[in-house]
């Protein structure tokens, strides 16, 4: 029968390889890119300049440093409580910038969502925000440092700025996921924009809003550490900077790393708890 013929044709006797993927332009570009990366890597291995440090020597020295850092941490320039206080300063910086950023982004995110706004407003906000996001946070802080002076004020403004850029994109995209019909229904029943937003849009995207905000909080925590070191924003980052480039104290560097690690893990645990909680209710 026909069916048998087709089944026979499924495995035709042929020596030619059968292509499954089409060999189009994008496939060629991807292959060429991979190939050139492989070539560059191989060339790199043969041409790098190791002056007088041997590969093996370098690796062992690094591990010795790590060993000193993490197995012999000590307190030299600050006490345990002072260190704790500094971490809390860093967390406060992260929290402040996330909260301010979230409030601003919620409002602008609504205006940036295509289904809640006009195309003109939505596009202009989205384009502006894309530019804000393209510039790294550290750079924003340094830009604002011109006006506010290097320190915590510049850090707060710069970090908020970048958080807003990030959260507007995240929020508006979760608002856009809402079924257009829900908006249509409420509009047809005479509800106005504010009522639709608070009664349908925000309840529907609450899970996304919370998880994106928390993700940004975690990012802001690590940025806040870096800001303490790079922009004099205070907190544990400043101690990190002093220990590494001023006192050259490897052991204290280890202590600070432990502080940051413990708090990062704590944040992660809290985040998981919150997410589990909102998924249930």
């Amino acid at each position: 029968m026909d069916f048998e013929n087709i089944m026979k044709r499924i495995a035709p006797p042929s020596n030619r390889p059968v292509r499954v993927k089409p060999m189009n332009q994008s496939a060629i570009v991807i292959r060429l890119t991979l190939l050139s990366l492989v070539i560059l890597t191989i060339i790199g291995f043969f041409t790098y300049d190791d002056t007088d440090v041997g590969m093996l020597e370098g690796i062992t020295a690094t591990f010795t440093n790590f060993k000193v850092m993490f197995t012999e941490p000590h307190f030299n320039h600050f006490t345990f409580m002072e260190g704790l206080y500094q971490v809390l300063v860093t967390i406060s910086l992260a929290l402040l910038t996330t909260v301010i950023g979230a409030v601003i982004s919620l409002m602008l995110g609504l205006l940036a969502a295509k289904n809640l706004s006009t195309p003109k407003i939505s596009n202009s906000i989205k384009n502006f925000v894309a530019v804000v996001r393209a510039v790294p946070t550290v750079l924003w802080v340094l830009i604002f440092a011109i006006a506010a002076g290097l320190g915590s004020v510049a850090a707060v403004i710069g970090m908020t700025f970048h958080s807003v850029g990030y959260l507007i994109k995240a929020y508006s995209e979760s608002f856009e996921e809402l079924d257009d019909g829900v908006i249509e229904v409420l509009k047809a029943s005479g509800a106005n924009w504010w009522q639709i937003v608070w009664q349908a849009v925000i309840p529907s995207s609450m899970t996304y809003i919370i998880s994106w905000t928390f993700l940004r909080f975690e990012i802001n925590f690590s940025v806040a550490v870096a800001m303490g070191a790079a922009a004099g924003a205070g907190g544990i980052g400043y101690d990190l900077f002093m220990a590494s480039s001023f006192y050259l104290d490897l052991r204290e560097l280890g202590t600070i790393t432990f502080y940051i690690l413990v708090f990062a893990i704590l944040l992660e645990i809290v985040a998981i708890r919150i997410k589990r909680h909102i998924n249930i209710t």
């Binding site: 029943s189 005479g190 106005n192 504010w194 009522q195 937003v197 608070w198 009664q199």
Partner: peptide, 10 residues
């Protein structure tokens, strides 16, 4: 919602 003011409805 259509019967309510913005704030009360929201």
């Amino acid at each position: 919602l259509g019967y309510k003011s913005s704030v009360v409805g929201a």
